[in-house]
């Protein structure tokens, strides 16, 4: 947990950034439609607070749903990969393929299959945040200290006992590392999904607001929505960090977290 003294430089930097922004607006005399002032953005955010609040709630649900789904599906896939070299050789390249396919290219296809609804956004968030989980957990399940592996072999431990009592506990810290990366990706996936799903439907997430306000040239509100999206990314990362710290406390002494 960070102390106030550690947070202070970060807050100071934010103040400096906002001041530089305000100074930039004054010096360049840019039109509010191109670069609104921080005060203008704050005012637009206050006026659109209900829509932003609703959008934040919807996108949080989608991103969190996508993250939970990617952790569940990714961990299960990693467990399957860890069980056989043949399975790994046959399926792992497709997991890599999943990462290389641009999500904007498959989002329209997902809408065709799943419809203009939250489920589709969750699916997009899951797909985009899946690979770090698969990759990290597979590595964690396979990178076992040779002595520990031999210890289990000495006692003629079966595959299931070795998975449950050795491989899965060993992979916990790798899963957490993967979840940290995936938390940011899940927010990106949810907003990208909403760009497509929100188009012409009643769905109202931050991504929908961003595309809507962009087309209406409401730049101050658009910037407010971008800032709220960034804050959501930070909150989700913080949540994963908090859960990780709680879990790792059981694994190692606190300094190891």
């Amino acid at each position: 947990m960070k102390t106030p003294l550690q947070i202070l430089p970060m807050l100071l930097m934010a103040v400096v950034g906002i001041a530089a922004w305000q100074l930039g607006v004054v010096l360049t005399g840019a039109a509010p439609i191109l670069l609104p002032s921080p005060a203008c953005v704050a005012s637009a955010a206050w006026q659109a607070r209900q829509e932003l609040g609703q959008g934040l709630l919807t996108t949080t649900t989608a991103a969190l749903g996508g993250l939970v789904a990617s952790i569940t599906v990714g961990s299960l896939m990693a467990i399957v990969f860890s069980q056989s070299r043949l399975l790994r050789a046959s399926l792992y390249p497709y997991a890599v393929f999943l990462q290389t396919v641009p999500v904007v290219a498959i989002a329209p296809l997902l809408i065709t299959w799943s419809g203009y609804q939250l489920r589709t956004v969750v699916l997009v968030a899951m797909i985009i945040s899946l690979f770090p989980i698969i990759s990290n957990v597979t590595t964690g399940l396979l990178s076992i200290d040779p002595s520990l592996q031999e210890l289990f072999q000495v006692y003629r431990s079966n595959r299931w006992a070795m998975l449950r009592k050795l491989r899965i506990p060993c992979a916990v810290s790798s899963l957490i590392q993967g979840a940290r990366v995936s938390s940011g990706l899940a927010v990106i996936g949810a907003i990208v999904g909403e760009f497509f799903v929100g188009n012409g439907s009643s769905y109202a997430g931050l991504g929908t607001l961003i595309t809507g306000w962009q087309s209406q040239q409401k730049t101050p509100a658009l910037i407010a929505a971008v800032i709220v999206s960034a804050v959501l990314g930070l909150l989700l990362f913080g949540l994963v960090h908090l859960v990780a710290a709680t879990i790792l406390k059981k694994w190692h002494t606190p300094h190891a977290t």
């Binding site: 002595s147 031999e150 006992a161 009592k165 506990p169 190692h252």
Partner: peptide, 29 residues
Amino acid sequence: SDLAFVFQDAALLPWRTARENVQLPLELT
């Protein structure tokens, strides 16, 4: 199945207490 091995690096499971580590062979066998 009636032998035991002591490794140079102790090879203890870091997430288990000393007691739980000692209990492990009983769970496995």
